[in-house]
Design a protein around this nucleic acid. Structure first.
Length: 638
RNA sequence: ACCUCGGUAGCUCAGUUGGACAGAGCACCCGCCUUCUAAGCGGGCGGUCGGCGGUUCGAAUCCGCCCCGAGGUGCCA
């Protein structure tokens, strides 16, 4: 079984494999409504004319409003290659660029930047194109293969803890991003539902004559831990390994006699399970059901798309393990070493162990079977493993072995990308990993309950104000909004940071409602929903209005809305979910600034009012869509 | 010992893959609700980007050597 979330570390195996091919980024489809696309095209033509090379123009949004809307940075790098003056080259490129209908003002600045200020009419044109797009400007996916995402990864008979939060919501969020990009997505929940630890638990339950019909997860959790402890003979094996005296060893052997008996019992139970003993299989299915109920509950509360349909655990692969060994043995990639079957690597000492000297299989064996299944059966051209960063070396080995034997191939023989998205650990206040083994830690359920309670308390407190939009709502309605707010706080806190870093589990920080938080985004959304409702205008009327861009706040908001599609595509390319959060925080901030300085319902004239309403409407759509990538619910009122 | 990842404001973190004076949020200080939701907006305070060298028009970002922290390293998963 895969104990995937014990603790700590930070790394990603992702950056190298995902960004290896620069031409892929160059040739990738770009959002057609995005001004950066048009600028890139026009500047590239000019660069080709001037220098004869097909270099990217390096068009970026300006870091500072005083530099205009966009900047073109290619001149400096090109000047370095040709050893010419960067400012002069920038001017040459600028002179050769046809910017009619796009930019009003362009100038060379600093060491060779080209600052671009867009023509307002062009921004309006882009905004109309964005509004007309059903995908918010995201071009259709070119790859029709599946994206396979390994997420959640719970172990049967064990309680979910805060570590599972990450594997579940990160995986779900990535799945949503790829769905948004038009890809076919397969969520795979690789359950730890097979092997000796499960048999040990079953054996102990049988010995204690447990009532399987009334079994709870707490019971299972306790028995699981008890079974681990009572079969533990680490001290004895250590004593033998350290060549302790015979007296000491005999003493330990007597002491560990019960442990050996328990282990023998567990192994017998395992054989019964493996051979399909009807009674044992029935009980096995029962403990899986008890375990999975908590997972489905958590998924529902977290608004994560995960159900029994996604379950494909270790037991699913049990009959293909011997085939894995055969394939590696026949291919000559594996050899026997010290009685075990290993796959050696050319570039490192330590091999990958795929079969124990006693003939037993290991989790690497299961993972190899799963890799093959996910590429060749599920047809995944991208397989992402959302698993604790500490298993980095393990996945490096498994992926390399899979590539060596050619299991990184889709049905049509194309190459699959195998990526381990190793997320950081959730640490305690002492900066040490929160460990489940100690037993006294926060369970996932505790965390989610607390988030809902605090959210509900906050929403209820504000609803007491007679002028609040939520005033007069029923406790059930307030609780629904409160849970959405509390859960948004938790999910945003997790997904908006660097996934590969550890973070300290701080409930108060996680469930904060002010500043750069999930509720801040929900609040902006609720404000807009409220304005739109109060306006009394139909979508059709609002949709045909002219978007106003005269005010700086209007212009800034519009330009940011135009960047949405590119951001989603960037997340698909890099798997960095924090880009969504950063984008949305900026969007909400831009909107709130706009809202502060530009009256909407009380605008000076009817056309301006409708135009600003249209800006509001589009902001609401993008905000809600972005929040949906995190699986965060955006209430109409709060 | 070896391999890997990290070190940015008092705290929590960003930093568009080498670009302009390093940005947010929290905390603290000062303004803004008879006006569309103050979970908000505007302004201020605050940093030798772990240290030292190197590469170049230009480095938090790339390279080298140190310091500190964490994780991993063959028959558990």
């Amino acid at each position: 079984m895969r104990a995937r979330f014990i603790g700590c570390a930070a790394f990603d195996t992702i950056r190298a494999p995902m960004s290896a091919d620069p031409t892929a980024t160059l040739n990738a489809a770009r959002p057609t409504h995005d001004p950066a696309t048009e600028l890139e095209v026009r500047f590239m033509r000019a660069i080709e004319k001037v220098t004869g090379t097909a270099a990217t123009a390096q068009v970026r949004a300006s870091t500072n409003a005083k530099f205009g809307d966009f900047q073109m940075n290619a001149a400096m790098a090109l000047a370095k290659e040709s050893k010419s003056n960067p400012r002069a080259l920038a001017q040459q490129i600028l002179d050769a660029t046809d910017l009619s209908g796009v930019a009003t003002m362009c100038e060379v600045a600093g060491p060779g930047f080209v600052n671009v200020t867009l023509e307002t009419a062009f921004i309006a044109q882009c905004m109309d194109a964005l509004c007309a797009s059903e995908t918010l400007g995201i071009p259709p996916a070119t790859d029709t293969h599946a994206v396979v995402i390994d997420l959640c990864g719970v172990n049967v008979a064990k309680q979910m803890h805060v570590g599972h939060l990450r594997a579940t919501i990160i995986g779900d969020s990535l799945a949503r991003v790829f769905e948004r990009l038009g890809r076919t997505v397969r969520r795979e929940n690789h359950l730890g539902d097979w092997g000796l630890p499960i048999a040990m638990t079953l054996a102990k339950l049988l010995r204690e004559k447990a009532d399987f019909a009334r079994l709870t997860l707490d019971d299972l959790n306790r028995v699981y831990r008890g079974a681990q402890q009572e079969t533990n003979i680490d001290d004895l094996t250590a004593a033998i390994a350290n060549h302790c005296g015979p007296h000491r060893i005999i003493e330990l052997e007597i002491q560990y006699e019960p442990a050996r008996a328990a282990m023998d019992n567990a192994k017998k139970t395992l054989i019964r399970l493996q051979s399909g003993d009807v009674e044992i299989v029935r009980l096995w299915e029962r403990i899986i059901a008890v375990t999975m109920d908590q997972v489905y509950d958590a998924a529902r509360v977290l608004n994560v798309k995960l159900s029994a349909d996604n379950n494909r655990g270790e037991s699913f692969f049990r009959d293909s393990l011997a085939g894995v060994i055969d394939a590696f043995a026949k291919s000559g990639l594996a050899r026997i070493d010290k009685g075990a079957m290993v796959v050696p690597f050319a570039d490192r000492e330590r091999p990958l162990l795929i079969q124990k000297s006693d003939g037993g299989f290991l989790y690497a064996t299961t993972d190899l079977a799963a890799v093959r299944f996910r590429t060749s059966e599920l047809d995944g051209s991208l397989v992402v493993y959302v698993v604790d960063a500490r298993q980095r070396d393990h996945f490096k080995d498994v992926f390399d072995a899979a590539r060596m034997i050619g299991w990184n191939r889709t049905k049509d023989g194309g190459e699959s990308q195998l990526v381990h998205l190793g997320f950081g650990a959730v640490l305690g206040a002492d900066k040490k990993p929160l460990k489940t083994r100690s037993g006294e830690n926060f369970t996932l359920k505790d965390l989610l309950d607390e988030a809902c309670d605090r959210g509900t308390a906050e929403v209820t407190r504000r609803a007491a104000d007679p002028s609040a939009p939520t005033h007069g709502l029923s406790p059930a309605q307030l609780s629904a909004i409160g849970c959405a707010v509390g859960i948004a706080a938790v999910k945003y806190a997790d997904l908006s940071g660097d996934l590969t870093k550890d973070y300290v589990f701080d409930l108060d920080a996680m469930i904060a409602f002010e500043g750069d938080t999930g509720p801040y985004l929900q609040y902006a959304h609720a404000r807009i929903a409220s304005i739109l409702a109060k306006s009394g205008e139909s979508d059709a009327v609002i949709g045909s209005a002219t978007i106003p861009l005269a005010e700086p706040a209007e212009r800034a908001l519009a330009l940011h809305l135009l960047r949405y599609a590119q951001m989603v595509m960037d997340v698909g390319r890099t798997l960095e979910t924090n880009r969504v959060g950063a984008y949305l925080a900026q969007l909400a901030s831009s909107f709130n600034s706009f809202y502060q300085s530009c009256p909407v319902l009380k605008a000076d004239d009817a056309a301006l009012r409708l135009g600003r309403l249209r800006l509001c409407a589009l902001t609401r759509v993008v905000l809600a869509d972005g929040l949906s990538l995190y699986g965060i619910i955006a209430p109409e009122r709060m």
